[in-house]
Design a protein around this nucleic acid. Structure first.
Ligand SMILES: [Mn+2]
Ligand SMILES: [Mn+2]
Ligand SMILES: [Mn+2]
Ligand SMILES: [Mn+2]
Lengths: 218, 218
DNA sequence: ACTAATTTTTAGACTCACCTAAAAATTGAA
DNA sequence: TTCAATTTTTAGGTGAGTCTAAAAATTAGT
């Protein structure tokens, strides 16, 4: 149906659409995919032919409903494979992305439905991101950036915004992981850094760190 | 390192080299890969540049030692994935090939070593073919085509030569599977068909079937 | 409102993997 | 051994996906 390259574009457009609404610029797509704007223009024309995106010159692109379904199915595969790698093959959460990037392009409906069953129908991937169901529906759990909480508030760490290896390794080093209870002890007005209590330990994290951790309040 | 296409050529040349020794002809490769001889000539020149094969015009190709190692690593991946699909994801032995054909191209040494461990270091794939070790060594078990046995001989079915879906489904229907004990009851001189006893049942199989079943004598 | 800077598209070219058709080499049959 | 059939290579071309450089459109600053 779609080539590996087309799938990577579709997925990227989907992800960019979550943060900014309106048409996604060729430059934004090019940057994300480490390619050139001119290449993006070519591909976007092709995807438009295939009714995956709506494209008007100089106006950026938006996914059609069909395009969103295609994106969801690629993301479903990506995240199921990430769960597999962590749960079954001893990968750590900072090692899975690169491999899932390849595995997400394997074509086999049976493979994915069986993998889903084998993993016990997981709802989140190792980074706390929701796994779309077979119909492309995505159930986003209620969560807030830690940086938006105030002193005294409590919650559970349920996700990360940045999924780079550096950030994830940093969290490992600090002993912060998904499922940990977190309490805001203090917020430093000068630099916006947070003093938090996690796993019976008190530690200070910069505002940048706090802006990349998702908390489910309770 | 190698593109998907290059890997498919390398694997094909390896498989063809097992049956015929001497240089593998462009036509043979083309037929196997459903492509044209002229395309094969192009690719073979490229693989020769990369020291994977030795190629002399009009003389066919042979794999270098390096080429054999590369082939073994692709086949190792292919067969490990086949085991995974059958053992963990409820695929039947006639459904695995197409998917493994894709999965064999995923690049990640850790993925393969962990998969190997997860599967318990299997020695054979679902068709009874040996799984090369991480260094590219292939340990072929002792086996003989059923068609070469004589009346009264006994053995265990340990592999198939043809791995087409049609043949494998036929074996399923007849109740013949790997690990089954088989005894030659009679051989019909007229058409070379075999009367065999398998799973307490006596059945007749054509010579063509017998020529595609591997037996380990005991 | 007019430029100047920036963004986006177009034009033209490249590589990879494939194709067809024609030429060249090999093989094999009389 | 000669020539016809077959195999293999070469020549030239295509589409996908990428690139650079130049042109066109948009956006922003004064
Ligand atoms: Mn990808
Ligand atoms: Mn993830
Ligand atoms: Mn393959
Ligand atoms: Mn197999």
């Amino acid at each position: 149906m779609f080539s590996q390259s087309e799938e990577n574009y579709i997925k990227t457009i989907y992800h960019l659409s979550i943060d900014f609404d309106g048409g996604i610029s060729t430059n934004a797509i090019a940057k994300q995919l480490s390619t050139k704007a001119s290449s993006v223009t070519d591909m976007v024309k092709k995807l438009s032919e295939k009714e995956v995106v709506v494209y008007k010159k100089y106006q950026g692109v938006t996914l059609t409903d069909f395009g969103k379904k295609v994106a969801a199915s690629i993301i479903r595969k990506h995240r199921l494979w990430e769960v597999f790698l962590v749960e079954k093959l001893n990968f750590s959460w900072d090692e899975v992305h690169e491999v899932a990037e390849q595995l997400e392009h394997i074509k086999s409906p049976k493979l994915i439905s069986e993998l889903d069953a084998f993993l016990g129908y997981p709802k989140q991937d190792p980074h706390g991101d929701p796994i779309p169901d077979a119909d492309g529906n995505i159930h986003q759990i209620e969560k807030k950036l830690l940086s938006l909480l105030t002193i005294g508030e409590k919650g559970v760490c349920v996700g990360v915004d940045d999924t780079s290896s550096e950030f994830l390794k940093f969290l490992d080093k600090q002993g912060i992981g998904l499922g940990n209870s977190i309490k805001i002890v203090e917020i430093e007005p000068f630099d916006g850094s947070f003093v938090i209590e996690v796993n019976e330990k008190v530690l200070t994290i910069s505002n940048k760190i706090a802006s990349n951790l998702y908390i489910q309040k309770r």
